[in-house]
Design a protein around this nucleic acid. Structure first.
Length: 271
DNA sequence: CAAAGGTCCTGCTCGC
DNA sequence: TGCGAGCAGGACCTTT
C-alpha cells in the first residue's frame, strides 16, 4: 500500500506528536512480520527519547538516543497515535508506549511490514544499504537514469520500481510517472532516449510532489495517523482506470501484467 | 477465486 | 565449462 508519498505523509503527521517523547515500554504481540521484530527493541528502547523522525525510501526511521527503529509498512501497514491506552484490535502487532501515556500503534493485517532495531548507522543496515538515491533528491536526475538504464533489457517500469536504482517508487506512482512522461511501461529501459529519461525524472518529481501535497493516495485502507484519508486518488490519471478514456487523447486506457504487477497505460500516448 | 499498494531471495539464462 | 550479471518468479500473509 504505502509508497513514498504515503510514508512521507505518515512521517509528517507523526513527527510533531512523537518527537521528544520518552519510551516507557515496547509491547510486541506478534513478532512474526516480514522478518522477526528485532528482540533488542524491547530490551533497549525503554527509557530513550525519540530524537528524530526521518524517512529513507519507504522506510521510516525513528532516531532514539542510542539507536534507530526502522519501520516498513509493507502493503497493509498503518501507524496510529493513541492519546491513551486502548484495547488492541486484531492485527495490532506492536505498540511503542510513551511515558506521557500516548502510544504509537502498528497495525498490519498482511504482515508484509517489518520493525527493526539497530545501534549502528541505519544507512548501513542491510535493508537500507543498497537503496538507490531518493527520487526527490538532485542525484536522481536524467543523467543518472540514462546511464543506469544503458544496456538493460528489462521494462522501464520494472527499473523504476527497483529500489536499488531509485528508492520508494511503487506500482501506483511508476504507472503515473510513465504516463505523464509518455513512456510505454514495457519499453526496454536501455532503449529510452536521453531526452525521455529527463522527462521521466521530471514526471517522477512532479507526481511524487503532488501526491505528498495531497496527503498520499487512499485506495482502500491507507490512512493518516489521525485517521484521515489521502486525496491523490482523484488525481490518478491511469492507475485503476482501464477502459476509461485517456485524459490527453481519449483513447481507452489498457491494463496488462508486467512481472506479475498490474500495469495501466495509454496505448496511444505512451511509446 | 484471484488479486491487492512491497521486496528479498532463489535460481535460471545468457554472454563472455 | 565456469562465472557473474541481469532478470523473472516465488515466497511471505490476510482480506475482499
Amino acid at each position: 500500500m504505502p509508497e513514498l508519498p504515503e510514508v512521507e505523509t505518515v512521517r509528517r503527521a507523526l513527527a510533531p506528536d512523537i518527537r521528544g517523547q520518552r519510551i516507557a515500554r515496547v509491547v510486541v504481540r506478534q513478532p512474526r512480520l516480514r522478518w522477526p521484530v528485532s528482540p533488542g527493541l524491547r530490551r533497549e528502547a525503554p527509557g530513550q527519547r525519540v530524537q528524530t523522525v526521518q524517512r529513507r525510501g519507504k522506510y521510516l526511521l525513528l532516531g532514539l538516543d542510542t539507536g534507530t527503529v526502522i519501520l516498513h509498512l509493507g502493503m497493509s501497514g498503518s501507524l496510529r497515535i493513541l492519546n491513551k491506552a486502548a484495547p488492541p484490535e486484531p492485527h495490532d502487532h506492536l505498540d511503542l508506549c510513551f511515558c506521557s501515556g500516548r502510544m504509537l500503534r502498528l497495525r498490519d493485517p498482511r504482515r508484509f511490514g517489518s520493525v527493526h532495531w539497530t545501534r549502528v548507522d541505519p544507512q548501513r543496515h542491510r535493508l537500507l544499504r543498497h537503496l538507490g538515491p531518493e527520487p526527490l533528491a538532485s542525484t536522481f536526475n536524467g543523467d543518472y537514469l540514462y546511464h543506469t538504464s544503458r544496456g538493460r533489457r528489462l521494462a522501464m517500469k520494472t527499473l523504476l520500481m527497483d529500489a536499488r536504482v531509485v528508492a520508494g517508487i511503487g506500482n501506483i506512482y511508476a504507472n503515473e510517472a510513465l504516463f505523464v512522461a509518455g513512456v510505454h511501461p514495457a519499453r526496454h529501459a536501455g532503449r529510452v532516449s536521453r531526452l525521455r529519461c529527463d522527462r521521466l525524472v521530471e514526471a517522477v518529481h512532479d507526481v511524487l510532489r503532488r501526491a505528498i501535497r495531497a496527503g498520499g493516495t487512499t485506495l482502500r485502507d491507507f490512512r493518516h495517523p489521525d485517521g484521515a484519508a489521502g486525496y491523490f486518488r482523484t488525481d490518478l490519471k491511469v492507475y485503476g482506470r482501464e477502459g476509461q478514456p485517456c485524459v490527453y487523447c481519449g483513447a481507452l486506457l489498457r491494463r496488462r501484467l508486467l512481472n506479475q504487477r498490474s500495469c495501466f497505460y495509454c496505448p496511444s500516448c505512451q511509446r
